[in-house]
Design a protein around this nucleic acid. Sequence first.
DNA 1: CTTGCTACTCACCGCTCGGTGACAGATTGG
DNA 2: CCAATCTGTCACCGAGCGGTGAGTAGCAAG
Lengths: 218, 218
Amino acid sequence: MAVANAAVKIPLETPVAEKRVRNRAATEQAILDAAKRLLAEEGFQNFGINAVARGAGCDKQLIYRYYGGLNGLVEAIGTDLGDWVKDRIPDDTGGMFLLTYGDLMERLALLFLDALRADPLMRRIVAWEVSENSEQVRRLSEARSKALAGWIERMRGSLTPPKGVDAQAVNAMIFAAIQHLVLSAAVSDQCAGLPLKNAKDWEKAAASLKRIVRGVYG
Amino acid sequence: MAVANAAVKIPLETPVAEKRVRNRAATEQAILDAAKRLLAEEGFQNFGINAVARGAGCDKQLIYRYYGGLNGLVEAIGTDLGDWVKDRIPDDTGGMFLLTYGDLMERLALLFLDALRADPLMRRIVAWEVSENSEQVRRLSEARSKALAGWIERMRGSLTPPKGVDAQAVNAMIFAAIQHLVLSAAVSDQCAGLPLKNAKDWEKAAASLKRIVRGVYG
DNA sequence: CTTGCTACTCACCGCTCGGTGACAGATTGG
DNA sequence: CCAATCTGTCACCGAGCGGTGAGTAGCAAG
């Protein structure tokens, strides 16, 4: 029986076609990609060593070897995250002249709204951030907020907020609103009773967002 | 041995005061309380049959029997949730005359902010809502939003939003902002770089919230 | 070829999970 | 009294988890 098993086992493995060439760099990349894909598509709930290894098509042992476990892998995702802003959000003013701080914030808000809507990985991370306080998620959170703050700073240029407005607090509320809106919509196509399914719904949301920004910054 | 066991077991249980002797109603309540406590304190991540049974100090079989499993239990929590608004948020105007829609929304926003800050269970549920789309969480979500909408409607009275403002969308953004702000603060004592630790931080946040509301509604 | 290193796989561990069937003790009704 | 019923307990299942030690296949240098 055991012999028959061994005799059968070898031909069973050959038809797998994909001969995974011994290439450490490629394997590392495959693991990282699988992790990001899995997190983006399935969320943080079922995110684990076994699932990532399965997604990458390799043994989980390699994740321990190359990344030192899940923590290291998450850290690697965080590092990648630094490029998010660069990839996803334009760094120039789109040909507009931003005359006032209000112009700037309106543009930033709308850009951020669209960017977050378009990036499932980022949404999952934001949801993770408000659901757990582990070391892992804190790293991700930090990388994210740092990248975002840098982007805003770059865009801000020499514009300064109007006097008498606590811009840091107001901006935090605006970005908080955007994040919750997008997260809620991604999960249930609505937010606080406001439908967010089709493009028209989103136009209304964007219009109200502008309205809010302008209400504060003029 | 069995006798000795029994002799020891009783004094061990007595300090719990509650003599848990064959009382279905009490057990059901204990399970429900344990479930709410667990969800509020530990979050939805480790929320499961075993954990609830452990917290309630009974066998998980009883959860299946009395609630039909976790789903039924969550549904029971949802039913309880309907009373949240009644318990937590005042239903009158606090002796103020709300002359304008702006007055109303400012007051609602601040009340909601404080209520959410004070209620860990509600926060966990909101975090759950944006993290998962299971049947369970949809039920909770629905119960919550219904209660909230009813409260707002009741408070609104005959006040109507100013013309030219999409109140539904604007209000959704305001409530979204509050929810994300509070959730983020509960987990990391800050939101988008804005520190939210002590009372003074929160005062600044509340001031900015007012500012935003007034910016839109005057 | 042999030796040694590297990339990779496998089998197994202990644990917790959700879920179920069988059973024990108290209570009640006939 | 017995029998049925209700409340609660326990042991057990298969599956999946994170984690590890031991071993295997490819490759390059001697």
